[in-house]
Design a protein around this nucleic acid. Structure first.
Length: 528
RNA sequence: GCCGCGUUGGUCAAGGGGUUAAGACGCCUCCCUUUCACGGAGGAAUCACGGGUUCGAAUCCCGUACGUGGUACCA
């Protein structure tokens, strides 16, 4: 199976060779049941990084085998999220590929064929038990004080399945169209082990594994069968998935063995979970509402209930930041670096350095990443996003040059893209309300005089730039024997409406002479 | 209950036998800025607990506790 070679002196790092001779192929295999959650995107990311790092392919496969949980629109939504993140699959239902179809519902017959093969080879069997019969079996186990309510080697010879029935009987039931499932036949007391790329050796005893259903009564495969068949057929070399799959890994390994494909089994990597910030359990969509932060990549509206769950995108996150924060939630390269571009991640990502333990999600830190990316990126990267934000509020940006200047001026104080609105509206529209109460208490005749004088001087200014504005302001202040400090706050409030915003003279220089004078006059009249 | 996986400050974490136990977020103090940010300087950990092994353990071993996942004809 896996050949590992540990380089001397590099403890904990191991290099996997067995599957490296083939072209690397990884897949993200979501089921279209709703919004794409943080943990899901991180799984995509790690898949993607690994594939691109090794010049491999990244495949999107839709696992829509549970018809009862299928949600209209969820597949397209997942594709949209991947697009927003810039994580483009090389193959998938939307782009096609050599191994199509990429929707499991369209591959139904394949699974049936392999399930039948397993039965034929004695690795699986038909089970005709009704839900009631199974419940009765479990009830009996409960009564006997057993805690494992498994359909396994302890009980399978007491159930209605092809293991106990005469072949002719089985055939008769089959011919009569009796509903059945196909279950894997797990031999007791064998130790199954494998090398997880993240955790190293993991062991299970088959004693604790039940005869999982492989093919459901509706003819659809369960995840267990489908994932093995498809990973094999699609030539997947490395399989990354959430840690919640670890307990079923032995079933999958058994299947790889029983189907005769064990030499081609992918390397496994079970990713740590992303947990609730306040403890107790893995992060779920409900936590977002409860704790006030997004858990989905993009807005998701449940088509049945109409309920909207917010996404990182709409709340003002940059995809660069979103990917960055997800990448380092459970991984780091051992240096102090925290800000990584996608290209840097492709270069530096290493699966052996992924943590073993789950990490609690910290929204404050998430916002910090966004802030860093806003500061880092040129404003041209998000001008269109911000201008549509303005449009939503009924403000149309016409002066593109001024707009860019403004964004440049305020970007350091914006954590989310949505912050740009309140940080810069006053450059385009005079403030609706002025925090006059913050001026009044210290207002006096002399200050009133100062501002009257200031207006006159500003009106006479030949040039309208930051320095002239500030110098003129200071000269007049000195003439009135006033400190500039006690004058700047009132001016700020006159111009922006409150105690916020960038440097006052920067603001004045951008909004222009006419507007500056007008705003001062307006407040002055209210004060006077 | 059973099985698996885990456990370094509030959170993310470096570190893998000898270190003053990095760094980041958040918090607090100060500087810069007469707004707020940005930027800068500081402050806060007996490495879950108990036993070993060792001259020496956050680092290795065992146990306990706690957390987390699975235990479906869901993925």
């Amino acid at each position: 199976m896996n050949v590992q070679v540990r380089k001397p002196g590099e403890r904990g790092k191991f290099y996997l060779y067995s599957n490296m001779s083939k072209k690397v192929r990884v897949r993200f295999a979501p089921s279209p049941t709703g919004g794409l959650h943080l943990g899901g995107v991180r799984t995509v990311l790690y898949n993607y990084l690994f594939a691109k790092q090794h010049g491999g392919d990244f495949i999107l496969r839709i696992e829509d085998t549970d018809q009862s949980r299928y949600v209209e629109g969820a597949e397209q939504y997942i594709i949209d999220c991947l697009n927003w993140c810039g994580l483009h699959p090389d193959e998938g239902p939307h782009v096609g590929g050599e191994y199509a179809p990429y929707r499991q519902s369209e591959r139904k017959d394949l699974y049936k064929k392999y399930a039948a093969q397993l039965v034929k080879d004695g690795y699986a069997y038909y089970a005709f038990d009704t839900p009631e019969e199974i419940e009765a079996m479990r009830e009996k186990q409960r009564a006997e004080g057993k805690h494992t309510l498994h359909y396994d080697h302890h009980v399978r010879y007491n159930m209605r399945n092809s293991l106990n029935l005469m072949p002719a009987e089985t055939q008769q039931l089959l011919d009569a169209g009796t509903p059945y499932v196909i279950r894997i036949k797990v031999e007791p007391n064998e130790v199954i082990h494998f090398e997880d790329m993240i955790r190293g050796r993991v062991e299970f005893n088959t004693e604790n594994i039940d005869d999982k259903v492989l093919l459901k009564a509706d003819g659809m495969p369960t995840y267990h069968l489908a994932v093995v068949v498809d990973d094999h057929l699609m030539k997947i070399t490395h399989a990354f998935r959430g840690e919640e799959w670890l307990p079923s890994a032995p079933v999958h390994i058994l299947l790889w063995k029983y189907l005769g494909w064990i030499d081609d089994m992918p390397e496994w990597a079970h990713l740590p979970l992303i947990l609730k910030p306040d403890g107790n359990g893995k992060l779920s969509k409900r936590d977002g509402d409860r704790l006030g932060f997004p858990v989905f990549a993009m807005n998701w509206t449940d088509p049945k209930t109409g309920e909207l769950i917010h996404g990182f995108k709409e709340l003002g996150f940059l995809p660069e930041a979103f990917l960055n924060l997800l990448a380092v939630l459970g991984w780091n390269d051992g240096t102090e670096q925290e800000i990584y571009s996608l290209d840097e991640l492709i270069e530096k990502f290493s699966i052996e350095r992924v943590h073993h333990a789950g990490a609690k999600f910290d929204y404050e830190k998430a916002k910090w990443f966004n802030h860093e990316w806003i500061k880092k990126l040129p404003v041209s990267r998000f001008t269109s996003h911000v201008s549509s934000l303005f449009k939503e509020k009924g403000i149309t940006i016409t002066d593109e040059e001024k707009f860019i200047k403004v964004l440049e001026l305020v970007k350091d104080r914006c954590t989310l893209l949505t912050d740009f609105y309140e940080q810069s509206v006053f450059f385009f529209v005079a403030p609706a309300t002025i925090d006059i109460d913050s001026i009044k208490p210290k207002w006096n005749e002399n200050k009133q005089m100062f501002f009257v004088e200031l207006i006159r001087a500003y009106n006479l200014l030949q040039q309208w730039d930051h320095n002239d504005l500030e110098n003129t302001f200071k000269e007049i202040a000195a003439a009135h024997q006033l400190k500039t400090g006690e004058l700047m706050l009132p001016l700020r409030i006159m111009l922006v409406g409150g105690k916020f915003g960038p440097g006052v003279f920067d603001i004045a220089s951008v909004i222009g002479k006419e507007e500056t004078v007008e705003r001062i006059e307006k407040t002055l009249s209210e004060l006077g």
